[in-house]
Nucleic acid binder design. Structure first.
Length: 687
DNA sequence: AGACCCAGGTTTTTT
DNA sequence: ACCTGGGTCT
């Protein structure tokens, strides 16, 4: 019934067309930066459906972020219409797994009303675990255990396999001895709380499929075609999930760029993309190297930098967009001067080109670098948006409200329980909570029941008795209201907030009125979000709302409202991946920052180079480098050195502007330079 | 339970 | 330099 599939090949270059048309068997698309990757995936979905090879719900496309997923769905909708596009299973790995688990969690020992433990929830549980173990000195931080455990999970390692495993670095060595036990106990705490952390969503789905052949078979039957975006970012669990899911049919199409793999530090395994044809010997491999984004100058610089990496697949980006302007490289005295020069440079470029503010992005390695920039922009009256920073749903007041809702949805949720049991203050302190935990363990009671039992037995401290009754009363009342749907979700949640007098608590806890007002506004935002969700969701439910609040970062929703305003973008290079801007400023081109100093000791220089490469390839028209001669680091002012990566760019592509000079260094042969005005390279050490 | 003080550690971040 | 977390004192 659909129009002929040739439709969807129109306007593609030969490689893109091949990638779209090649629907059967494993396919690896090596898509260089700006080579039309999203275009290929969306066209390929349309092509498969157009040819009648599968129904929409039989096509699975996985991305890493919600933003990528919704963008992709938009574009598929443009091709095949909204209705059919809705049917395509297009989501992040995590949302996909969540969907599987919501249906089958009971098969692996969780109840279906399980809640997701966010990062801070998980840390709360970990803190309790380390407190209980008490075998180590106080310098053990839950956060470090958390990242170590996360890495293990992403690597498909259970607690039993930890002890044998290799130790990554000195910090980990200190933790290695207790890691296995902490991991084990953390996992059982999660289980008892009927909660899964982010990594569990993947790990437990893998387990589910491995242990229940029937369920796996069902999934395999459903998904005739599987596509994966940003394949270079997949970790071991994700790889195993894909292998399992694609089974004998092996209709797996992965799209990615090994040169843009910048998430190795959180478990992404670049080998997945480098060794694809070892795992799938019959694979078709297609390289997209025509770039539709950048000038030739930018691409030449990027190509020559990345050529210094050894673990990569050879490719050379080219474009037909003309040579463009050389890279400007501005040398300044320190970070304040750097920021001031960036401001000047924006004004200068705007005068010459008339470009609006949103055409500019300032990229940096570390979030701390944003501070002087923000100050300078504010002073100059230039509108800007800083990306990154704390997620809305991680803010204390927001977590409080969400945790109340989690306790209502999942009575076992320990992290949420601990967060709200004494919020607002009810006189329930650590001593009481320890008793509660003991009771839980001895009698295998859920937390709420244990509290009640404590009262019954008269074990509760007198000061806490009233508070416990209050808390249990509120929980019971509102759990009932949610269960019986007495009113809209928003109405019930609003009443809950009123019932606990959270507003009053904020006034009491905040130092100044402004802060209290700000926080209260955030609470209102949560309540509004709940109302909004209720209006738009297909099947609105409390649990579903909670799922969304954990899996969708607010960056996703924020971007829509903020895209309207014209502002300069400030973000880390990491968050810039996948984006493009006409004018890109690269801040702090210094050794120690980029490459980051820790990368030198950890031997991850090649990943830093890829990061630099990602930064370069974000630019459409023009790149500007900024470098400060001295920079405050760890509180100390320190002299810097030009980033070694700059030396890998051919000189003729760079124009240096020295707005400051490096102090003379008495080296063996100090070249007589009365007024050091270097035309090209930074004067210090080469190579 | 809450205020205060000291020590340690400082990349990148999505879900 | 600055923030966080934990320990101690009231």
């Amino acid at each position: 019934m659909s129009r002929p599939s040739a439709n969807f090949l129109a306007g593609l270059n030969p490689q893109q067309a091949q990638a779209v048309a090649c629907t059967e068997g494993p396919v690896l698309v090596l898509a260089g930066a700006g080579s039309g990757k999203t275009r290929v995936i969306t066209r390929r979905i349309a092509h498969i459906l157009g040819k009648g090879l599968a129904q929409p719900k039989e096509v699975l496309a996985v991305t890493f972020t919600n933003k990528a997923a919704s963008e992709m769905r938009e574009r598929v909708a443009e091709l095949i219409g909204r209705e059919r596009a809705e049917g395509v299973v297009l989501s992040t790995f995590h949302s996909f797994c969540l969907r599987v688990l919501r249906t089958h969690a009971d098969q692996i020992g969780y109840r279906r009303n399980f809640t997701i433990a966010g990062e801070s929830d998980a840390r709360l549980l970990l803190r309790r675990v380390t407190d209980e173990l008490r075998t180590h000195d106080a310098s053990y931080s839950p956060a470090l255990f958390q990242s170590a455990i996360s890495l293990r999970k992403n690597n498909c390692q259970g607690p039993e396999e930890v002890e044998a495993g290799p130790v990554r670095d000195a910090t980990e060595e200190k933790y290695a001895a207790s890691l296995a036990e902490v991991y084990e106990r953390y996992q059982s705490a999660l289980r008892a709380a009927n909660s899964l952390d982010f990594d569990d969503l993947l790990v437990q789905t893998l387990r589910l499929w491995r242990e229940h052949a029937r369920l796996l078979a069902g999934a395999r039957r459903q998904f005739k075609y599987v596509m994966v975006d940003e394949y270079q970012d997949t970790n071991r669990v994700q790889y195993e999930l894909l292998r399992l899911l694609t089974g004998e049919r092996r209709n797996l199409c992965v799209v990615g760029d090994d040169d843009q793999s910048i998430y190795g530090w959180r478990g992404a395994d670049i080998k997945n993309i480098l060794d694809f044809e070892r795992d799938f010997p019959e694979a078709t491999i297609i390289t997209l190297d025509q770039n539709y984004r950048s000038t030739e100058t930018i691409l030449r610089a990027a190509n020559s930098v990345i050529a210094n990496n050894s673990a990569r697949r050879e490719k050379k980006l080219w474009s037909e967009l003309g040579k463009g302007r050389a890279i400007d490289w501005i040398l300044t005295a320190d970070e304040e001067a750097e920021a001031a020069e960036a401001v000047k440079w924006i004004q200068h470029v705007r005068e010459k080109s008339g470009a609006p503010y949103q055409d500019f992005a300032l990229l940096y390695r570390s979030n701390i670098q944003s501070k002087p920039l923000e100050i300078a922009f504010r002073r100059a009256g230039i509108p800007y948006v800083v990306y990154g920073g704390q997620d809305f749903f991680e803010r204390a007041e927001v977590k409080d409200i969400i945790s109340y809702l989690k306790v209502l949805a999942n009575p076992a949720d320990e992290a949420a329980f601990l967060r709200v049991v004494n919020m607002p203050r009810r006189g329930i302190g650590d001593a009481t909570l320890h008793q509660v935990h003991d009771l839980c363990r001895e009698e295998h009671l859920p937390l709420g029941k244990a509290l009640l039992e404590l009262l019954k037995r008269g074990l509760a401290p007198p000061a806490a008795e009233k508070g416990i009754r209050e808390f249990l009363g509120v929980v019971a009342e509102f759990r009932k209201r949610f269960k019986e749907r007495q009113g809209t979700l928003q109405r019930i949640a609003t009443d809950l907030v009123l019932a606990i007098d959270y507003r009053g608590e904020l006034d009491r806890a905040c130092k100044n009125a402004a802060q209290a007002i700000n926080r209260w506004q955030n609470v209102e935002l949560v309540l509004n979000a709940l109302g909004e969700y209720e209006k738009t969701a297909k099947t609105p439910g409390l649990m579903e709302f909670l799922d969304e609040s954990h899996l969708n970062s607010d960056q996703d929703r924020k971007s829509k409202a903020e895209r309207r305003e014209s502002a300069v973008t400030l973000m880390t290079i990491h968050s810039a991946k996948g984006l493009e801007f006409p004018f890109v400023f690269l801040m702090g081109i210094e050794d120690g920052l980029l490459p980051h100093e820790t990368s030198l000791s950890e031997g991850t220089l090649e990943e830093e180079r890829r990061l630099f490469y990602v930064a370069l390839t974000r630019a459409r028209r023009h790149l500007t480098f900024f470098e400060a001669i001295s920079r405050v680091k760890h509180g100390k002012e320190r002299m810097t050195k030009t980033s070694r990566f700059v030396q890998e760019i051919p000189e003729e592509l760079l124009t240096q502007h020295a707005r400051a000079a490096r102090p003379m260094v008495e080296e063996r042969v100090a070249p007589p330079q009365p007024k050091p005005k270097p035309k090209r390279r930074a004067p210090r050490k080469r190579g």
